[in-house]
């Protein structure tokens, strides 16, 4: 037991970061599963983090209220900015949402009276326990699992494949896109709120472009085909810098290279249920299968 205590004393932050990053990777899964490349999740995380931190620090609210605020504020913002921006598709949506992210960052930077500007917020009470992160992750995964097996999950998938055909199946394309965007924003906000009460300090630079790319990398690396994908992606991207400590200056570059390699060689990510199924089938047959990947 002593071994575990030592491990936990040293690595608890890292383990909890994995959980929070997994939440972030899931947050972008929602829009990706509708075929939307929305890059606003870092900003939503920031909105959630600042809302929650201000609630506990300035308003003296309980941690539960702070978490709910951290979910609610970005969700509401997502509903408002989603209406105009989600009409865009492809790279135009990515640009619009990146622009929104910058707006949020600069707003935080300049609203010094509330946010402390570039100095950030210091002395956030450390209220996040390990089980808060675990419970959040489990709850979000459960919701996701249920959603995927329902008409909502099927609608997301249909919209991703062909939104015109989806509309002609009676699916309200815009409302489902908005739902995906808002749910993702809420989960990113939850991750931000948990993170803020873990790290003692938050600043506007944490929620910029780089964080957005990190979130996308985790989701794409892990794969969006199955539930485990975002978690696997978060695990790899969070642990990688620990193993590559000597290359820390090149971290972003390495992340970029990983993203390119994954897109080239594993377009469906590390965790791809259909590929795993294929492997199982092949090993059961016990012979090489030349048609692998062709289907």
């Amino acid at each position: 037991m002593e071994g575990f205590d030592n491990f936990w004393a040293v690595y608890s932050n890292l383990v909890l970061s994995i959980g929070i990053n997994a939440l972030l990777a899931i947050s972008i899964w929602f829009t990706l599963s509708c075929g939307l490349l929305a890059m606003a999740n870092a900003a939503f995380m920031g909105i959630g983090a600042y809302t929650a931190a201000l609630l506990t620090m300035k308003a003296g609210a309980s941690f539960t209220v702070a978490l709910l605020g951290g979910i609610g504020a970005p969700l509401a913002v997502a509903l408002i900015i989603g209406m105009p921006t989600l009409r865009l598709s492809g790279v135009y949506l990515a640009m619009a949402t990146l622009g929104f992210g910058e707006v949020v960052r600069i707003l935080i930077l300049n609203a010094e009276r509330w946010t402390g500007g570039a100095l950030g917020l210091n002395g956030i009470p450390q209220l996040t326990q390990w089980w808060h992160v675990l419970a959040s992750l489990v709850a979000v995964l459960l919701v996701l699992w249920r959603l995927r097996r329902s008409r909502v999950g099927r609608a997301f998938e249909a919209i991703k494949e062909d939104d015109v055909a989806a509309a002609l199946m009676g699916i309200g394309v815009m409302s489902h896109k908005l739902l995906a965007f808002a749910l993702g924003a809420g989960i990113a906000g939850l991750a931000g709120a948990l993170n803020a009460h873990l790290t003692f300090f938050i600043g506007p630079a944490e929620y910029g472009f780089e964080r957005g790319i990190d979130i996308l990398t985790m989701a794409v690396l892990g794969g969006t085909g199955g539930l485990a994908g975002p978690v696997v992606g978060a695990l790899v991207i969070t642990l990688l810098p620990e193993f590559l400590r000597s290359f820390r200056n090149y971290r972003l570059m390495i992340n970029g290279v990983i993203l390119v390699l994954i897109v080239l060689f594993l377009p469906k990510g590390i965790w791809d249920p259909s590929r795993v199924r294929q492997w199982l089938k092949r090993s059961r047959r016990g012979m090489p299968d030349n048609t692998a990947g062709v289907r």
Binding site: R151, A155, E157, A158, D162, A166, M169
Partner: peptide, 21 residues
């Protein structure tokens, strides 16, 4: 043709029932 290619035949048809679920 605009079927949902990455979905099973069964799921393709069930998507059509969206409004009735």
């Amino acid at each position: 043709i605009r079927v949902f290619k990455e979905m099973s035949l069964l799921d393709n048809v069930i998507v059509g029932m969206h409004a009735h679920l």
